[in-house]
Nucleic acid binder design. Structure first.
Lengths: 299, 299
DNA sequence: CCATGAACATACCTTAAAGGTATTGCTCTG
DNA sequence: CAGAGCAATACCTTTAAGGTATGTTCATGG
C-alpha cells in the first residue's frame, strides 16, 4: 500500500464516481479503477459497491475513509514540522552570554531573531568565555557571545558588532566637566577594570590601549562585570572604560563621556562563537539573523 | 513522498549505514542511496550526515525519524482495523429476538459468536416478527430471530435449529404422573397458547398439530410469551406446549413431559432472518457462526 | 422491448521510475 | 602508502503506473 492509493481512494470516496475522481486526479479512469482494485485486494476487503450510477462506500469503506484521512493529515503534519525544523524555525537554541553584551546588543538581536523564528525556544545561559568554549565542545550550547577572542580549534568566531569606548566617570570628578576627554587624561587616574576571570579579556584590551598611549594604568579595582564596575564609579572608586552599550546603566552620579585620541583600534568587538562543524539549521538561521543585524547597524 | 521512502529512511536511520540497511531491505545499495536523496530533496532538508563509516542522523533527521515511526504505526493500525472490519470482526451488530428463543438457543449462539468475534458490539432488541421485518427493511437491525416464517420479498430466512415440543403441565395434573404423554391426550384439555400478536406464529403451529391429530384444542388462555404461559401453567390454568428450550423455566409446580405420537413435523423451527442484499462482513461472520452452531447441534 | 447513454472493467500498449551491476571517489587505518 | 569500507555516480534492466480503445452491465426513454 502506498500514499497514492490513499489519495486515490479518498478522491473516489468523495466523488462517488471513478470517472470524475480520475478527472480530479488528472489521470484517466482505467488506471484509477485498477489502483482501487489493488487497494481492495491488498486489504482483502471490499471498499466500494459498484452501482450503475457510480460507486458507493461499504461500511468497511466508510471506516477506511476515516483512517485514510487521518493518515493523510498525520503525513502532512510530519512533513510540515520537518520542513520547519529544516529551516531552523523549530527547535531549541541554547545561547551563552556574558558581560556588557547583555546590556544592549543581545536583547536587540534576540528580539529580531524571535520575529523571524517565532517557534524556536531560546534558552539563555550566563557563562564566561572559558565556560562557553567547554559548553560548545560538549554541545550543551550552540552559540556563545564574547568580546575578546583567542582562536580556538573547532570553534568559529563571527563579528557581531563593534562599539566605541566611553569613559564612565563620577559627576563630581574634574574630567566630568569636559564634553570630550582626551585619552591621555587617563594617565595617573585610578581605573576600575573588568572582568576578572579567564584571560584574555576586556581588561587586557584596556591595558593595551593605555600602553599604546604611553602610560601604565593605575588599577583602582578589578571586578567581575560591567554593572559592578559602573556601580563602583558611582561610589567614587575611580574611572572606567566601558563599551557604548553600557550607557543603558544610568547610575546616579555617573556620566559617560566620549574619548578623543584613543589609540587604534579604539573600539571593542562583540563576536559570537559556535562549533565550526555545526550544520544545524537552527544555528544557520541564527547566524543569518546575526549577519542581517550587523548589516542593519552599518546603514 | 511515499511509504516506501519512510520504510527505507527508518531502516537507514536504524542501521546508521546505507549498505547494511539495503541488505536488510533486500535491495542493493545504490537505489537506497537514491531514495534517501530523493526524500531529502523532497523535504528540502538534510536528514543524514555522511561519514566515512556510515551515516548519522541530523537533528532534523531525529525529528523526522520520530514522525516516520508514528506514520508507520498509524498506517499499520489503520490497515489492521480495516481488515478486522472486513472479516466482520469489528463493528456493531443489531439483533432482534423474541419469545422462547431468548431462553436457551440465543444465549448459546451469542456466546459462541463472541468467542470468534470478540470486538463486535452486539446490541439486542426485543421485537416481534412484524417489527423485525420493518426494522430489517429500515436497516435498524441486521438480524432477527423467529420461529414461524412466511416468505417475505427481500428477506432471507435461515434455519438455526429445530426443537422437539414438550408438554408443560402442573404437577398436580393427572398427566404429570405419566413419563410420556401421547399427543391425543391433549384433546379436551384446556391449553395455554402463546404468543399473541402478529400471525402466523407458534400458536398456529400448535393449533395445526392438534387438528392433524383429529381434535380442536380448547383454548384456556392466550398470552404474549412463553414465560407468562408457563407461569399460568404453574397457576393451574391448563397445559401448554413449549419448545424444549423452555425447560430452563423451572417454575415450582410445573413439570415437562415428552410427547409421543406427535403429528409431523412434530418439531418447531427457530430461524434467523436478514436482508437478502446485505453484504456486510458483520452479517457474513454472524451467519457463519450460525451455521457452525447448527452443525454442532447435529453431531 | 429495444436503443441509448453512463458507468465500471478489461486488454494492450507506452512511459516513468524503481532496482541492479559496475565503478568511482573519499576516508580512515594498519 | 596501500587497502578496506562506504557512499555516490553512471548506465542498464525490469517493474508498475498511466494512457487509449473497447467491452459489459444496467437503467432509462421512446
Amino acid at each position: 500500500m502506498d500514499l497514492r492509493h490513499l489519495r486515490y481512494f479518498i478522491a473516489v470516496a468523495e466523488e462517488k464516481n471513478i470517472g470524475r475522481a480520475a478527472a480530479r486526479l488528472h489521470i484517466s479512469q482505467p488506471p484509477l479503477t485498477r489502483q482501487i482494485q489493488q487497494l481492495e485486494a491488498e486489504l482483502g476487503v471490499s471498499l466500494f459497491i459498484r452501482t450503475p450510477r457510480g460507486v458507493e462506500l461499504t461500511e468497511v469503506g466508510e471506516l477506511f475513509l476515516a483512517e485514510a484521512r487521518n493518515i493523510r493529515s498525520v503525513v502532512e503534519q510530519a512533513t510540515e514540522r520537518t520542513q520547519r525544523a529544516g529551516q531552523g524555525k523549530l527547535g531549541r537554541l541554547d545561547i551563552a552570554i556574558f558581560g556588557s553584551a547583555i546590556l544592549d546588543v543581545i536583547p536587540k538581536l534576540l528580539r529580531a531573531y524571535k520575529v523571524m523564528f517565532p517557534k524556536v525556544k531560546i534558552v539563555l545561559h550566563t557563562m564566561n568565555k572559558g565556560e562557553q568554549i567547554e559548553a560548545l565542545q560538549q554541545r550543551r550550547i550552540s552559540v556563545g557571545f564574547n568580546r575578546i577572542l583567542s582562536p580556538t580549534p573547532g570553534i568559529t568566531a563571527e563579528l557581531v558588532t563593534t562599539e566605541a569606548l566611553l569613559l564612565a566617570v563620577n559627576a563630581a570628578h574634574p574630567l566630568a566637566s569636559r564634553d570630550v576627554v582626551p585619552f591621555e587624561a587617563l594617565a595617573g587616574e585610578p581605573l576600575v577594570l573588568f572582568p576578572t576571570g579567564v584571560r584574555p579579556s576586556f581588561v587586557d584590551t584596556v591595558v593595551a590601549l593605555c600602553q599604546s598611549a604611553g602610560f601604565t594604568p593605575e588599577v583602582s579595582q578589578e571586578v567581575g562585570d560591567a554593572v559592578t564596575a559602573v556601580a563602583l564609579v558611582a561610589g567614587g572608586f575611580g574611572l572606567c572604560l566601558v563599551p557604548q552599550s553600557a550607557t543603558v546603566l544610568a547610575f546616579p552620579g555617573v556620566v559617560y563621556r566620549p574619548l578623543s585620541d584613543v589609540p587604534t583600534p579604539g573600539r571593542v568587538d562583540l563576536s559570537c562563537i559556535y562549533r565550526s562543524d555545526d550544520q544545524s539549521p537552527l544555528l544557520a538561521g541564527f547566524l543569518a539573523e546575526v549577519r542581517r543585524f550587523r548589516a542593519g547597524l552599518r546603514t
